[in-house]
Amino acid sequence: MTAGIDLDQPHAQAIRSDEDVVRVRQLVRTVAVAAKLSLVDQTKLVTAASELARNTLVYGGGGGVEVATVDNGRRRGVRIIFADSGPGIADLNLALTDGYTTGGGLGLGLSGARRLVDEFDIDTGVGKGTRITVIKWAR
């Protein structure tokens, strides 16, 4: 129990609106601080979460996020799972290419977020939604 947040429990947040993206950022920041990530790592993780939460809202038609602390025996980290039941991603390689966008953005959301975290796993398919799991380890 640090900074008033229970680290043993995963925290959930729905992503239905613009304001929810802000809430996701604040939740991730709180957990990252409690998990003792360095300032730069906190910033990277919150930025990645912001990109991915926006993707969930804009491309996935809304969904939810689960933030939890994880431990691999040597290091502590923060794991975030983004899930939506939207149309899914047809061509994953293309979606992960810098500069590729279908939504009028800069095309850095997915590819950029992947560079900001330590582990990035994506499970998607046309018609079955998208589930992205990211982990950032404390140094």
């Binding site: 730069v40 910033t43 990277k44 800069l106 850095l108 950029g112 560079r115 900001l116």
Partner: peptide
Amino acid sequence: MRPAVAITLVELGL
């Protein structure tokens, strides 16, 4: 701009 923000932006590719 804060240092951590600048470092993150570089990593993000912006």
